[in-house]
Design a protein around this nucleic acid. Structure first.
Length: 223
DNA sequence: GTCCAGGGCCTAC
DNA sequence: GTAGGCCATGGA
C-alpha cells in the first residue's frame, strides 16, 4: 500500500466517513466553495442561511440581486464585498455560457477546470472543490492543511506549489472521485487534531509516521 | 486583545 | 516567479 493510502486508511479508521460536501445541490457547493475562501465554515453557514431565508439561493436570484443586498446576506462569511463580486461574476458567467453549473461540469476535467480557473475569484483550491464536490470529478483538492499535515509527515517539502502537491496526490492515488472526496474531508477533520498545535500529541492517528513527533525528545507537554 | 479560519488578487521587486 | 499586503466577520 502506498504511503498516501496508508495515511488515508488511518484517518478513515479514526474519523469515519465525513459525508462531504454539506450542500443540497451542485450549485450550492459552488457558492459555498467561494464563500469559504479563508473563512470558517460556520460563518459560511450563516451566509447560506441568510440567502435561503430570503429565497435567494439560486443561480438566477444571486445573479439578479442588488449587490448591496447580496453583501448584507453574505456579510457573516467575511470579505463580503469581494465575495459579492465573485459570486455574481460566477453566476452571470454560468447563465451566459452554460445555463447551469451541471452543464459546465459535464466537460472533461481539463476543460472544466481551465474554465473555472479563468474566472476572477476562482483559484485552484476553489476550482478543485467545485469539480470534486459539485461535479464528482476526480480532481484532488489541496489546502493549507494538506501542506501542514503532510509536511509534518515528511512527505511534502514546504516549498511545493499547489500544482506540485496536487500532482503528487493524483499520481499516487487511484483516480476515484469518492476517494478524493473522502481524503480531503478527512484532512480538514484531522486539522482539528492537537498534533498541529501541540508539541506532542499521543492520541494522533498519524503519530506513528509523524516526523515532528518522532523528532521530539520526551517532553513535559503531553496532550 | 490576539489569532485564525476549508484563498485569491494585485503590486513590487 | 514570488514575497507581502489586502480583503472582513465571528468564535476561541
Amino acid at each position: 500500500m502506498s504511503e498516501l493510502m496508508q495515511t488515508y486508511q488511518r484517518l478513515y479508521d479514526r474519523y469515519g466517513p465525513r459525508h462531504w460536501w454539506p450542500a443540497d445541490s451542485p450549485f450550492e457547493v459552488a457558492i459555498g466553495a467561494i464563500l469559504t475562501q479563508n473563512t470558517n465554515w460556520q460563518n459560511v453557514e450563516k451566509a447560506l442561511a441568510n440567502l435561503r431565508a430570503a429565497n435567494a439561493l439560486s443561480l438566477q436570484r444571486i445573479a439578479a440581486l442588488d449587490p448591496e443586498q447580496l453583501q448584507q446576506f453574505i456579510r457573516p462569511s467575511g470579505y463580503f464585498r469581494q465575495k459579492t463580486e465573485r459570486l455574481q461574476l460566477f453566476c452571470h458567467y454560468l447563465i451566459k455560457q452554460h445555463g447551469s453549473i451541471e452543464i459546465l461540469l459535464k466537460q472533461s476535467l481539463t476543460d472544466a477546470r481551465n474554465e473555472l480557473l479563468a474566472l476572477k475569484g476562482i483559484g485552484p483550491e476553489t476550482a478543485d472543490s467545485i469539480l470534486l464536490y459539485a461535479g464528482e470529478i476526480a480532481s484532488f483538492v489541496v489546502d493549507a492543511y494538506t501542506r501542514r499535515i503532510f509536511g509534518r509527515l515528511g512527505q511534502l517539502e514546504g516549498s511545493k506549489t499547489y500544482t506540485e502537491i496536487r500532482d503528487y496526490f493524483m499520481q499516487s492515488l487511484p483516480h476515484q472521485a469518492p476517494l478524493f472526496n473522502e481524503y480531503h474531508a478527512l484532512i480538514v477533520q484531522h486539522a482539528k487534531c492537537h498534533c498541529l498545535t501541540k508539541p506532542r500529541c499521543l492520541d494522533c492517528p498519524l503519530a506513528e509516521n509523524c516526523r515532528y513527533l518522532l523528532d521530539q525528545q520526551a517532553g513535559p507537554e503531553l496532550v
